[in-house]
Computed example of a mutant assay.
Amino acid sequence: MSFLAEPPSSAVRGALWMVLSCAILSLLAGLVRYLSSLDIHPFQIVFCRLFFAFACFMPWIARRGVGHLRTGQTKLYGLRSVVSMAAMTTWFFAVALIPIGEVTALSFLSPLFMTVGAALVLGETVRLRRWTATVIGFLGALVIIRPGMMEMGDGQWLALASAVLMGTSSLVIKTLTRFDSATKVVFYSHLFMTPIGLIPALFVWEWPEPWAWLWLAAMGPIAVLGHISLTKAFSMADASAIAPFDFARLPFAVLVGWFAFGEVTDLWTWVGAAIIFTSSVYIARREAVLSRAKPARDMP
């Protein structure tokens, strides 16, 4: 039982942060779905989510000081903000149009784009076994969405576009975490995105009911916790190793959809989930073995 005393590898810690992020962001998806049912326009929801999340950083800035926010990655933050803004907007629209579980299933395409990008753009080493496990996870997502057996409407296409954009954004996050802390990455992203999100919101703005502001404000801290967890995950391991654990959003999304909206998930969704989690567990085990073997190879 001596292995219990060993600290978890960076890959395992990254996976745990990713799973935590999946749980929090699934809760956020449920909240977005509820706010959309109140006839609040997705553009307004996007802006309020960004504004209240940015407000959560004010105590942190007051405690740490403005000097702590220095960064040399301004252009990269600008790129990340534009891509993330597009990903968030398409995702919020998709959640408003189709069930949460379906949006989540389609978003599982994101890790595939991310793994390819990690190898081609970031130059990360993606071994054959990890490629195989990632593709198997992608096939599990295909079992869920069953292409050719369901109609692709506006919601599905928006969810697909969001998946591509999220994969691109994740690659930029991975690059940023090489230079800045997870909290700083999330702060600067909101600093750039909040004014961007205000522009389209102004064209559709209608004042919600006073009690709805409580739910709108709640999106802020939930989003901050979810994205800090996500950024911490990318800072601890290769993007291609962390990406498959994004599939953990499925059971969390299914639970939120069931409890809050009475959505019932069919058998094929659970079959696909089993395939996905099998591949994810294999990747975690493989990365842990490689992490332990590396010090031994480095010894003279």
Rank of each mutant, 00 (worst) to 15 (best):
P7N: 11
R13G: 02
R13P: 01
M18W: 01
V19S: 07
I24D: 08
L25F: 15
L28E: 12
R33A: 11
I40S: 09
P42H: 13
M58L: 15
P59M: 14
G67A: 15
G72V: 02
Q73I: 08
R80L: 07
M85D: 05
A87V: 05
T90F: 09
W91S: 10
F93M: 09
G101Q: 04
T115V: 15
V116T: 12
A118T: 06
T125D: 12
T132D: 05
V135D: 05
G137P: 04
F138K: 03
M150W: 01
E151F: 01
D154Q: 15
V164L: 14
G167R: 07
T168P: 00
T168I: 06
S169F: 10
V172F: 01
S181I: 05
S181H: 11
Y188V: 06
I196F: 15
P208W: 13
P210I: 05
W211C: 03
W215P: 01
A217V: 13
G226M: 03
G226K: 01
H227E: 14
S229V: 02
K232F: 06
A233H: 02
S235H: 10
F245N: 01
L255W: 05
L255V: 09
W258D: 01
E263I: 08
V264P: 03
T265R: 12
T265K: 12
G272M: 04
I276G: 00
I283C: 03
L290I: 10
